[in-house]
Simulated assay, not measured.
Amino acid sequence: MFNIIIVDDEEEILELMEVYLCNDGYNVLKATNGIEALKIINEEQIHLAILDIMMPGMNGLQVCIEIRKKYNIPIIMLSAKSQDMDKIQGLSMGSYDYMVKPFNPMELLARVKAQIRRYVYLNENSEVSKKEEIVEIKGISINKRNHKVHLYGKEIKLTPIEYKILLLLASNNGKIFNSEDIFKEIWKEKYFEGNNTVMVHIWRLREKIEENPKESKIVETVWGVGYKIEEE
């Protein structure tokens, strides 16, 4: 369930918005001033905020600025002012949408749904993107965007070939690759029996990431089969 905070010093408007939002399945938290709103936002997980601009004390614009210092939630501004400059000011402060009072509750509900969908989509894709860009296994972190490799937080300098071999093994947790598999994947050429190129590069890679290359605990050898990196 999504938590929505509505902030307005007019109790009737708060109650009206609460009825429509609750009937549509949202959990609503209410505040009648900016200070109260920020307290709730800092204590609860809020997915969207609806802020009235014209409030005594801390107005909606000031609340919006404070929210943006910590959170990236959607904000819909409400105001009795309809001038373009007022809308521009609200949007430039970090709000995602702007509605003029009096407003149609059904239109507000439609805009809330649109902003919630956008919020969910962006956050899901952000997480997916992050997972796709970073490979982490056995203390190793591989950033596929900038090709940087860290071992327990310390950057490790690898050659392009060493990087590709490490990425191949690390991206396939527990899968065993023999020398022919690795050669074809990395060099994109036909493999010839007796070619020790892969073995040489595996050794050099181990020298950089293993505490003891002769007793490898990251890039493991499966005797008679190949190599693997497997999270225990």
Rank of each mutant, 00 (worst) to 15 (best):
V100R: 00
G94E: 07
E215Q: 15
K154N: 15
V120I: 15
I134G: 06
N195V: 08
R118T: 15
L108G: 13
K188N: 14
P105N: 06
L158C: 10
V100A: 01
F183Q: 02
E133Y: 00
T159Y: 08
W223M: 04
F192S: 13
G153E: 07
E193W: 08
Y121K: 12
K208P: 07
L109P: 08
L167M: 11
E207H: 06
R111D: 11
E180N: 12
A114E: 09
I134V: 10
N125P: 09
V219M: 02
D97T: 02
V219N: 02
Y191G: 06
S129P: 03
G94L: 04
E132Y: 03
I116L: 05
E185N: 14
K208N: 05
N196I: 10
G174L: 04
N146M: 02
L91T: 02
V135M: 04
L169K: 09
F183T: 03
L167Q: 14
G194I: 02
A170D: 09
W187H: 08
I202S: 02
S126N: 13
K154G: 06
I140N: 02
K148D: 15
E107W: 00
S92W: 00
N125S: 11
R204S: 14
A170T: 04
K214M: 09
R204Y: 13
L166D: 10
G224E: 00
I161E: 07
E185D: 14
N178T: 07
S129T: 11
K113M: 04
L158M: 04
L166G: 13
E132A: 09
I137Y: 00
N195H: 07
N178M: 03
Y119H: 14
I186A: 02
G153T: 04
R206I: 08
W187I: 04
V128M: 13
K175Q: 14
Y191T: 03
K131S: 11
V222W: 11
V100P: 05
G153K: 01
H201K: 13
T221K: 12
E189W: 00
L91C: 03
E207R: 10
E207I: 01
I209G: 07
V200L: 12
S95Y: 03
F192D: 13
N143I: 00
K101R: 14
K157V: 14
L166E: 10
K175G: 11
E133Q: 15
K184A: 07
L168N: 08
M93R: 09
I182D: 09
V112C: 04
I202A: 04
E185V: 09
R204V: 04
